[in-house]
Simulated assay, not measured.
Amino acid sequence: MATSRAARLAPVVDMAERAEREAARQLGHFQGQLNQAEGKLNDLQRYLTDYQQQWMEEGRRGVSGQWLMNYQRFLSQLESAIVQQRQSVEWHRGNLDKARDAWQQRYARLEGLRKLVQRYQDEARQAADKREQKLFDELAQRLKRREEP
């Protein structure tokens, strides 16, 4: 009976394994998106630093008012892009956190099912061992009766 309980759970375990694998795939996908967003943010920040360095070099040589206005406009756009990219990073981080939570829940459910199946298998094995021992005891008693005068 216990073996049949474990066997009946096999399709449920299979479904839980598929759900866990899909959640792990989603987790990887969102991790990749976060990495990409963080990479873009780093690129923008590096570009800002390079542009500021260029400003310092050009400033030493003297700049026109038009160049200064263009620089300030571009710098403002670049800083705005950095703010937006930080928001994007946070949004992707939130998606990753949700995906991680979903995977952890599915993983925990799968592990719980596996433990239940293992318990049912252990119970079935113990019941089979008891039946076998009982059979051996009965055979030993029969042989003992035959040997008695």
Score class of each variant (00 low, 15 high):
Tyr71Cys: 07
Arg73Lys: 05
Arg73Ser: 10
Leu75Cys: 03
Ser76Met: 01
Gln77Met: 07
Gln77Trp: 07
Leu78Lys: 04
Glu79Cys: 04
Ser80Glu: 11
Ser80Phe: 13
Ala81His: 11
Ala81Lys: 13
Ala81Leu: 13
Ile82His: 03
Ile82Asp: 00
Ile82Val: 06
Val83Arg: 15
Gln84Glu: 14
Gln84Asn: 11
Gln85Leu: 00
Gln85Asp: 00
Ser88Trp: 13
Ser88Ile: 11
Val89Glu: 04
Val89Met: 04
Glu90Val: 05
Glu90Gly: 08
Trp91Met: 15
Trp91Ile: 13
Trp91Phe: 10
His92Ile: 02
His92Thr: 14
His92Asn: 15
Arg93Tyr: 08
Gly94Lys: 11
Leu96Ile: 03
Leu96Asn: 03
Leu96Phe: 00
Lys98Met: 09
Lys98Asp: 12
Lys98Leu: 09
Lys98Arg: 11
Ala99Tyr: 02
Ala99Leu: 06
Ala99Val: 05
Arg100Pro: 05
Asp101Arg: 09
Asp101Leu: 13
Ala102Trp: 03
Trp103Lys: 14
Trp103Thr: 02
Trp103Asp: 10
Trp103Cys: 05
Gln104Pro: 12
Gln104Met: 06
Gln104Glu: 12
Gln105Asp: 09
Arg106Trp: 10
Tyr107Ser: 14
Tyr107His: 15
Tyr107Phe: 14
Ala108Arg: 15
Arg109Ile: 12
Leu110Pro: 02
Leu110Tyr: 13
Glu111Pro: 06
Glu111Arg: 15
Gly112Asp: 08
Gly112Trp: 08
Gly112Glu: 09
Gly112Thr: 09
Arg114Tyr: 03
Arg114Trp: 02
Lys115Thr: 08
Lys115Gly: 11
Lys115Phe: 07
Lys115Asn: 11
Leu116Gln: 13
Leu116Glu: 13
Leu116Ala: 07
Val117Asp: 02
Val117Lys: 03
Val117Leu: 00
Arg119Pro: 04
Arg119Trp: 01
Arg119Asp: 04
Tyr120Phe: 07
Tyr120Pro: 06
Gln121Thr: 03
Gln121Leu: 01
Gln121Met: 05
Glu123Lys: 05
Ala124Cys: 01
Ala124Ile: 00
Ala124Gly: 02
Arg125Ala: 10
Gln126Cys: 01
Ala127Glu: 15
Ala128Gly: 01
Ala128Asn: 02
Ala128Gln: 10
Ala128His: 02
Asp129Glu: 14
Asp129Pro: 01
Lys130Arg: 11
Lys130Ala: 09
Lys130Cys: 04
Arg131Pro: 00
Arg131Gly: 12
Glu132Gly: 09
Glu132Val: 07
Glu132Thr: 05
Glu132His: 09
Gln133Gly: 06
Gln133Ile: 06
Gln133Pro: 07
Leu135Val: 07
Leu135Gln: 14
Leu135Ser: 12
Phe136Trp: 09
Phe136Lys: 15
Asp137Pro: 05
Asp137Asn: 03
Asp137Trp: 00
Glu138Ala: 11
Glu138Val: 01
Leu139Glu: 13
Leu139Phe: 08
Ala140Tyr: 09
Ala140Trp: 08
Ala140Asp: 12
Ala140Cys: 05
